[in-house]
Design a protein around this nucleic acid. Sequence first.
DNA 1: ACGCAATCGATGACCTGTCAACTACGTCTA
DNA 2: TAGACGTAGTTGACAGGTCATCGATTGCGT
Lengths: 157, 157
Amino acid sequence: MGEQEDVRWLTAEEQRAWRGFVRLHERLGGRLGRLLQSESNVSPADFAVLVNLTDTPDGRQRYQDLARALEWEKSRMSHHIARMAGRGMVVREECPEDGRGAFVVITDAGRAAIEAAAPRHVEAVRELFIDHVTPAELRVLAEVSERVIGKLDETQS
Amino acid sequence: MGEQEDVRWLTAEEQRAWRGFVRLHERLGGRLGRLLQSESNVSPADFAVLVNLTDTPDGRQRYQDLARALEWEKSRMSHHIARMAGRGMVVREECPEDGRGAFVVITDAGRAAIEAAAPRHVEAVRELFIDHVTPAELRVLAEVSERVIGKLDETQS
DNA sequence: ACGCAATCGATGACCTGTCAACTACGTCTA
DNA sequence: TAGACGTAGTTGACAGGTCATCGATTGCGT
């Protein structure tokens, strides 16, 4: 039951930054998600999928590529696409070149949904976040994010 | 089907910061959570609850206060405490002064769990995050977080 | 060609969180 | 002190995610 470990606990400043960061994401993510859901009837996950699909010329992408882009597990992908297909936003389509694979294809309803949702969402991101952060601060945020994510990629898993 | 909305889309720099921020939290949160879970058999949510309880002198707190501190819904609180109680980390206790209320009380097993988990967790936060961010950047992070959260609090909900 | 390993996606069990009632208790006012 | 209203926590149905596992298919080494 030793109490005096040699752990380097976080300083007050470090805690402030760490907790602030975590809390900010929780609060902001929650708020934006609820807005998306209530105003456009699209969940944040749906939105992410639809954005990725509309980024491709023909609105179709392999499960695997979509999963990589979103950093989702393949099983999550599979479950989520099944649900979205149930709601008519996407369709699953066999892949001729690879018998194992499949495509996710956006439907007209899916396009309509994201075109309706995107403007309000971007507006909300601005109002709730971007507008309160200076360009210099945004640059710091971007740099820090990229650096830390880079380190995460280095250390395995 | 108009395409030329008057929406002010995000600039490249803004997108970089916003996406980086979101992705960073997802990646880092996921990694830290898995570490906690696999090394200490404590979920991130458990950890948050236990930290809050050990911050009080007698390791006991009202559901309501705990929920406010963690910014959880009361129903989440209720469900989660029920699960943690099932695992022996906390106990539910009636509140004499208010017949509706109840306390969450940490058990010895709960204390043992967090004392085992905390050092490794802090170490991980350092290695994966703090160590790659300068003090000046940390200050920017803290300031931005507090400012934006403040704005979130102002606009209702 | 053959057999083995790796890849793709699906599936089912399980855990977590949200939402919308609902119960039980307190508080305020007439 | 009755009734109305608010508050504390619970509950059940459901959507979402993870994990382990599986069937099918492809690709690689010999």
